[in-house]
Write a protein that binds this DNA or RNA. Structure first.
Lengths: 115, 115
DNA sequence: CCACTATATTGACATTTGTCTATATAAGGA
DNA sequence: TCCTTATATAGACAAATGTCAATATAGTGG
């Protein structure tokens, strides 16, 4: 066995207090999922739009606002739906979407806490 | 020229009112950038942590909370920094990060509007 | 049952993201 | 000046994302 004869004096240590996480891994993952679902301009527009026309917005109307193929809009609606941020309801041939009001509450609380 | 003799009766149309976007493309893009930067559990944890220890958190401390290689943490800090959500300041060998309080305001307002 | 319409799904493909290892940079102390 | 440490950057690579064309699904009405 050898001594480490080249060992130098201990480096100065960082002066800050050690911190602790408050969010569980699950909470952080849930918040990240919500934020990620809002992380595209088209989805931001869709959610903002739905929020102002409570429950009465048809996919055929949403599509008009974007220069994107229909399956692309359908994809963005699915991302929001799977995150629980919006809900769709069939009405005859059409589907109407609305914002699910409770879903974004944890993210809202996070952002208010960061203030 | 031909008549379309197979033309059927007009389909029923969707009964909902046409809607309008309120966000400009730039506003939507900015909001999406902020949300996307928060769209990873590690970044959610980092921002929540920084918000509770205002301006006094060393990278060396942040790293301790995650089972990830140092460059990976550095990458997440960079994503948050480039979105303007956090700022870093060199302190000797160390770098301290803090939340930039104004940056997330537009996202906060969006979420409050969705309530 | 058949034709038509609105929306969703599938599959392909380029781009972006998250992670790592290796290396660079910059600050401090001997 | 040289060594050590903290953090950042570069590069590689697998996985996820955004887009489209093609197709499937489901509802309406003849």
């Amino acid at each position: 066995m050898q001594f480490d004869i080249n060992k130098t004096a201990a480096a100065p240590t960082c002066a800050t207090q050690p911190t602790e996480l408050r969010l569980s891994a699950d909470e952080a993952a849930r918040l990240a999922t919500l934020a990620k679902a809002l992380g595209h301009p088209v989805r931001v527009q869709i959610v903002e739009l739905l929020s102002r026309y409570g429950g009465e917005v048809c996919v055929c109307d949403i599509e008009r606002h974007f220069d994107l193929a229909q399956p692309t809009i359908s994809h963005h609606l699915r991302v929001l739906r799977e995150a629980g941020i919006i809900d769709g309801e069939q009405r005859g041939l059409w589907v109407h979407y609305r914002v699910a009001p409770e879903t974004l509450e944890p993210l809202r609380r996070l952002l208010l806490g960061l203030q």
